[in-house]
Nucleic acid binder design. Structure first.
Lengths: 212, 212
DNA sequence: TCCGAATGTGGACATCGTACACAAGGGTGG
DNA sequence: CCACCCTTGTGTACGATGTCCACATTCGGA
């Protein structure tokens, strides 16, 4: 009787299971966040038996970690795009400042446009120090953290940020922007109109510039 | 054969199951965060069959929500204690400023001392607007958010904060402090020595005061 | 060509959330 | 004082999940 119309593969080997699982996990995370990235669902999506995943990942946590890295890379890409979309400025000081702000607005835009991925990206399965891993980098080869660091360095170079305030500045900036992102996607500011959210973003970045 | 030595109750009714479940959930959350608050584990802990929970909570999410509220109340208590421990100051301006900072340091202290509860408190099961519910209040009857709001009001009253900057200020402050808390408990700043963490906290609060 | 290392399959188990039917007991109207 | 019923706890059951173990299939090199 009418065999299942599933897009089952004909070769015994899958060929690229690892990446297929990450991709599937990414889709699951996109809607539903980290807790939605379910091992069995991912393997199902890849047309493979659940256990096959264990040939490529130690356990669900390992898969989730890989998905998280991929999500971070997408965040980095959004941030890079935000910078790239900046109108060309001849004043290098203004340019550095604009690039710095773009890091923040790009981060916030990603959080709002892809809340599931955002949550997955910074879900921190007990080890987020890997925010520096190259698997988390965007097209330019930089992770979100590195993008922020570079923008801050530019601020120092152009004299916008006193050198003695540079150390640890990424943590101040990241704290504020990340906190707002959380407020926006599932805190009391959830469901804020995009324009208002943008306003809030500007306010927070203003605060950072003033207070850093 | 030696019947189980479990502290099983002799009355058919439990008497206070709802609270017992919340308490058990709180213990589970204390170590392990929100995902550790497992319905069956809580009922087991209360010496009751799993389904009994459904007489008091619609589902696991409802239980988790109650636990979250309780955790928030504990956060509020920590923050109140931080304020109460302030040395008495005769200068009302300095006092207002100190109370404001204590809100932030109390919040950060709670995050570091009780990371599991902290995560559970602000886990946001899709509806965190209830940060105002009275079940989330501390001994003084105020939730963490309300404590922050009151501290900001004091800043305005004492002239430390221009009135036109007051609206929305809680979100700026909350963003920065909450962001740092996340960085500290499971971000790149995890495992920072308590003294250094305190330094970081001071820096962030400095930034807020300057930039708010 | 043959064999071992990779990779995928099948079956099984413990645990979890939750639904449904049933039992026990406490409060209340008669 | 007692019978009834509503509340609360129990038993049994189901589907889903993560993961373990033994087995099958295939690929790549000696």
């Amino acid at each position: 009787m009418a065999e299942g119309g599933k897009p089952k593969r004909d070769t015994y080997r899958h060929g690229d299971l690892r990446n297929a699982l990450i991709k599937a996990g990414l889709e699951l995370a996109r809607e539903g966040g980290p807790e939605a990235v379910v091992l069995r669902a991912a393997t199902r999506h890849a047309g493979v038996v659940p256990n096959a995943a264990y040939r490529h990942f130690a356990d669900r946590a390992a898969l989730l970690h890989a998905v998280s890295q991929a999500a971070m890379a997408e965040a980095a890409r959004t941030m890079e795009a935000e910078q790239a979309a900046l109108p060309p400025a001849d004043d290098p000081v203004a340019a550095a400042r604009a690039r710095f702000r773009a890091v923040g607005t790009g981060y916030l835009r990603f959080a709002q446009e892809q809340p599931g991925l955002f949550r997955a990206a910074f879900h921190v399965p007990g080890d987020m120090a890997h925010a520096a891993a190259e698997t988390a980098a965007g097209a330019g080869g930089r992770t979100p953290f590195e993008l922020l660091g570079a923008a801050l360095d530019d601020l120092v170079e152009t004299g916008l940020l006193p050198e003695d305030r540079r150390p640890g500045a990424e943590f101040l900036a990241w704290s504020a922007v990340h906190g707002l992102a959380v407020l926006l996607i599932d805190g009391p500011l959830r469901g804020l109109h995009p324009t208002q959210a943008q306003d809030a973003g500007r306010h927070v970045i203003d605060m950072i510039e003033r207070g850093i």
